[in-house]
Nucleic acid binder design. Sequence first.
DNA 1: GGCAGAATTTGCGCTGGCGCAAACTCGGGG
DNA 2: CCCCGAGTTTGCGCCAGCGCAAATTCTGCC
Lengths: 233, 233
Amino acid sequence: MAALDRSLISRLPLFQGMAPEEQSEILRSARSSRYAKDSWIFEQDTDAHSFFVLIAGHIRVVRTTPDGQQVIARYISEGEIFGVAAALGRTTYPASAVAAVDCVVLAWPNGLWPELARRFPTFGATTYRTVGNRLQETQTRVVEMSTEQVEQRVAHALLRLANQTGRKTESGIEIDFPISRQDIAEMTGTTLHTVSRLLTKWEENGIIVSGRQKVTVKDAHRLVVLSENRTKG
Amino acid sequence: MAALDRSLISRLPLFQGMAPEEQSEILRSARSSRYAKDSWIFEQDTDAHSFFVLIAGHIRVVRTTPDGQQVIARYISEGEIFGVAAALGRTTYPASAVAAVDCVVLAWPNGLWPELARRFPTFGATTYRTVGNRLQETQTRVVEMSTEQVEQRVAHALLRLANQTGRKTESGIEIDFPISRQDIAEMTGTTLHTVSRLLTKWEENGIIVSGRQKVTVKDAHRLVVLSENRTKG
DNA sequence: GGCAGAATTTGCGCTGGCGCAAACTCGGGG
DNA sequence: CCCCGAGTTTGCGCCAGCGCAAATTCTGCC
């Protein structure tokens, strides 16, 4: 396999603060893979062998319950690190990672984590900052699920997707990968039927436009209002 | 202030793998404080100045929403590290910490984290393992809130409390600190009324005994059955 | 270009659990 | 020892959102 080019990662925040030759060096121990849409990068509860950086595409992180129900933990965007079981002293992955579209991924063997974190302190620190953000995000989700109505939760979820992975088009902010009503339901703890009804209503009101596996936010401001609109208090 | 004695921490898993003189050294930069029941150790969104280890007592970690609703993120037990914003590169605390009973706490200034983590690698690693566990726990909670009925969630919450902070008595596993119906409601995303009804029912069935701010699990096995009892398929 | 399967929409009835309100009980402080 | 207030129990009505079912519309593949 040819050596990987530094340009793959030099623009990513995760590798900022590393000298060019360091970037090349860290790449020497990485291997690059492609994953077709809907294929698994790793599976929940299996032995954690590697950690990853997403170079291109979008990844869905999914938890599956013993009785087969799925919950989407989060989406990973380009440049993000994921599958960091090693950094947290775990031996298995707590969730599965699925390619939401065709993806390109870099992988490092878990055994290299301690050495890499030691040799490139900002790399370690950035990773832990990411973990901290995810912990906080996840707790925010618990709070939302505890205190908000379904409509507010779906509005929040769309806003988050638009912010994290939205692509500005002339007609609004388009979510950058195929996402079904079922997916949105699994992010918000509701059913695809309820999501469908909400999106239909919002489309009638001009807040969004949506199609099959596609959502574009046209009026983020009104969505914010909806997401904050407490009916009880 | 007199020097703190090594025996305070020598039994704690967090400080295992450190030589006695290292334990004494790490204590030299710590300060010890007492917190009366219901007092705040730190408050959400305030500047994070320190990280902490709980020496004695129980601490409730609480997130408050903009409109004043509270959600209990977790309880901290003796020996646990908490308020680790520094380790995750955050500058503010994402939640508040309240003494559930009178507590004794050690605190280190955040500025010391990098040095301590470098000098005592197992200390850092253990901390990050704890963070990983909490992230996974929090995600489990999201899954529960998405897929389970209220009865199952309350059963799960009681089982978790019994495991983490339970004290075995001759009549069952007693939760080791005062906990109200309202508290349980804030852990499970329901109302104190519903919790009260469930506990009453369970007490009639001999699964628990409960009193004012007190719950004792008598038949954990049947509680497990309840927590897994899916009504829909 | 047509077809099979996937995704979405929509109607309808039902119920788990919440909101509200009131009564009651217990434990600690004075 | 009594009283006050926090914590708890309980009744009642209601409705957001789910379960179920069927129709409809895409779209990628053959």
